[in-house]
Amino acid sequence: MIDIVRQKISKLLSDGSVKGVVALAMANGHVAPCLFQKEDDLEPLCLGDTKKPGDARYPLNKVLITIARQYPEDVFGVLVRGCDERGLYVLYRLNQLEPDKVMTIGIACPQELAKACECKKPYPDELVAGEKTEGITQQGVQDMEDMDLSKRFSFWKNQFSKCVKCYGCRDICPMCFCRECSLECEDIISKGELPVDIPVFHLTRAMHMTDRCIDCGLCDETCPSGIPLRLLYKKTSKIMNAEFGFTSGINKNEQSPLNLMGPAPEK
């Protein structure tokens, strides 16, 4: 798989169709995001997950946004999995990246990883390497909905109480790109206090994720307190789907119903 990816990147770089490719490299003994600019430098290229599923996933799109902001006229390539590609669609929609300035190198995730990620669609639409594998059906939201209200309340209260306000969920999130963040707005979130305002802190983030979250699961992986944040955002996605027939990142050019004037579109 990596050979196909390497060939593809090499070709993109050599024929000048991209200025660079954001992908992963093995350096100093760990996997890290890397901007490859020369075809001769592709030796350390890797696909992450060297040891076990989810071992080394990075929000490469987030890196790409930073680079694209500096070099708005140049085209860059980026290594994408299914989730990353969904993220790209949303980032196009929100004007953070331009589709004609991005070339994707899509790789499918192995079944094992798809399972570990609970991924509904573990492959990108535009696939360069790897075999498409089955998506995983998710049960978590339903289970939570089946609990009674007071159980849900104490569950989330306990979960939110564990937060140490490290902002890891936000900082890792490939869909977070604001320069100023509501979570650091004193008018909304009181500062200097733990536990954080329950449920305001996490619901504020969830509301911001409502039409953005592409269910990549990096927030869950990152949270040092083990708060099941992804479950919260999955619920917002479920609402968006049930109420407005919208799924974030599934269609390339779909506008969010929350950003359309007028009543909710017909289902």
């Binding site: 929100l94 004007n95 953070q96 790109f177 604001c178 320069r179 100023e180 950003n259 359309l260």
Partner: peptide, 12 residues
């Protein structure tokens, strides 16, 4: 300074 040009306001 803080606008990231996401155009959400524009469509609204």
């Amino acid at each position: 300074e803080s606008c990231v040009g996401c155009k959400a306001c524009l469509t609204m």
